[in-house]
C-alpha cells in the first residue's frame, strides 16, 4: 500500500515548509480573535505557526538522550527572493538533500523566549513560564514568487528522493496569503506532486492565511467548502488528497475524512498537517 513506509532514522519523514514573506503578509489576519487594528499581521501569524510546527516536530523526536532524527526539515522563504531559511550544518547533510536533521534545528533555535503558558498541574490549570524556541521572526517584503518557490521545492525534494528512494515521500507545506505574483502556481504544484519515492508521490499541503473573516476551513473534501474569496480555491486545487494512513490519523483526531479530503487549511491551526505522520505510539495529549 502506498504511503505506508515506516518512519525511522534511516528513512526519516521529510517536511519542507514554504513561507510567503511578501509585502501583503503585513496585512491583518482575518482568522484572529482580535479584530481590526488589534489583529496580528499575517506575517506574525505565519511566524508563530511555523515556529510552533517546528517545536512540535522536535518534541515528538525528543528522547532522554537527545533529539532523534526521525524527521528532516527544510524551510524556504519567498518574498524579495526565494531562499532557504535554515541551512544544513555540514557538507554531509548538504549532500543528503538540503533538508536539515530535526536535531540540528532543535539544538539551534534563533533564540529562546520565556512565555507564560497554561499547563495542567494536579488537575488544575496553572500558569507556568516555559522556554519557547523561536527560529523565525515575521518578515514581509516585495512580491510573492510562489511559482519560483514551488520550483525550488521540486529541486529540493528531487535531491532528497535520490538519497531516500523508498522512504515516505516528502511533505511540502506552503503557508501563504494566496496570491502568486509570478504566474499560475497550479502547474508548478502539479509538477512538484509528480515526483515520487517507491512509497508514493510528494504531498503538497497548503495553509491559507487570509484577511477575510470567513469561517475557518480544515481539510475540506470539496471546493464548495472553501470560501470563494481570495485565492483559496486555487490553493485547494493545488493541495494533495490525504493518503489512507493520514486519513486514519485524521479520523482519530475527530476530523471527517474521505477519499477526496485535501491537505488544505484556511485561517485555522495547521498543526494537524504534520501530526498525521506517525513515528510510533503517541500519547494522545502530545500534539
Amino acid at each position: 500500500m502506498p504511503y505506508s513506509a515506516e518512519i525511522s532514522r534511516s528513512a526519516p519523514g521529510a517536511f519542507l515548509f514554504l513561507l510567503d514573506q511578501s509585502a501583503s503578509m503585513q496585512d491583518t489576519f482575518g482568522g484572529a480573535e482580535e479584530k481590526g487594528d488589534a489583529a496580528p499581521s499575517k506575517a506574525r501569524v505565519l511566524a508563530d505557526v511555523v515556529n510552533k510546527l517546528l517545536q512540535n516536530l522536535a518534541l515528538r523526536c525528543a528522547k532522554e538522550e537527545g533529539v532523534r532524527d526521525y524527521f528532516s526539515v527544510g524551510v524556504v522563504g519567498y518574498g524579495d527572493r526565494v531562499q532557504p531559511l535554515v541551512q544544513p550544518s555540514s557538507e554531509e547533510h548538504a549532500a543528503a538533500g538540503d533538508l536539515v536533521p530535526i536535531s540540528h534545528l532543535a539544538e539551534r533555535p534563533l533564540r529562546l523566549e520565556e512565555r507564560l503558558e497554561t499547563v495542567e498541574q494536579n488537575g488544575e490549570p496553572t500558569e507556568k513560564r516555559v522556554k519557547t524556541p523561536i527560529w523565525f521572526e515575521p518578515h514581509a517584503k516585495n512580491g510573492t514568487p510562489m511559482c519560483q518557490a514551488l520550483d525550488f521545492a521540486a529541486q529540493t525534494v528531487r535531491r532528497w528522493i535520490d538519497v531516500h528512494p523508498e522512504a515516505f515521500p516528502p511533505i511540502v507545506v506552503n503557508v501563504t496569503d494566496g496570491e502568486a505574483t509570478d504566474g499560475d502556481p497550479l502547474r508548478q504544484a502539479q509538477q512538484l506532486r509528480s515526483f515520487a519515492t517507491g512509497d508514493g508521490e510528494v504531498l503538497l499541503f497548503n495553509v491559507h492565511l487570509s484577511e477575510a473573516e470567513a469561517t475557518p476551513v480544515e481539510l475540506p473534501a470539496s471546493v464548495a467548502e472553501v470560501p470563494e474569496e481570495d485565492y483559496a480555491r486555487q490553493l485547494f486545487q493545488m493541495s494533495s488528497r490525504l493518503p489512507f494512513s493520514m486519513r486514519q490519523a485524521a479520523e482519530q483526531e475527530g476530523y471527517e475524512a474521505n477519499m477526496d479530503t485535501r491537505g488544505f487549511i484556511f485561517n485555522a491551526d495547521p498543526g494537524a498537517l504534520v501530526r498525521f505522520l506517525e513515528i510510533g505510539t503517541r500519547p494522545s495529549n502530545l500534539r
Binding site: 522536535a58 518534541l59 525528543a62 528522547k63 532522554e64 537527545g66 533529539v67 532543535a106 539544538e107 533555535p109 529562546l112 499547563v119 516555559v130 522556554k131 519557547t132 524556541p133 505510539t281 500519547p283 495529549n285 502530545l286
Partner: peptide, 16 residues
C-alpha cells in the same frame, strides 16, 4: 536542561 528536555520531562513517560 535543553528546552525540549524540560518540556518532555513535564509530560512524563507513557506505556501500555
Amino acid at each position: 536542561r535543553a528546552w525540549y528536555a524540560e518540556r518532555k520531562a513535564e509530560e512524563g513517560a507513557f506505556a501500555t
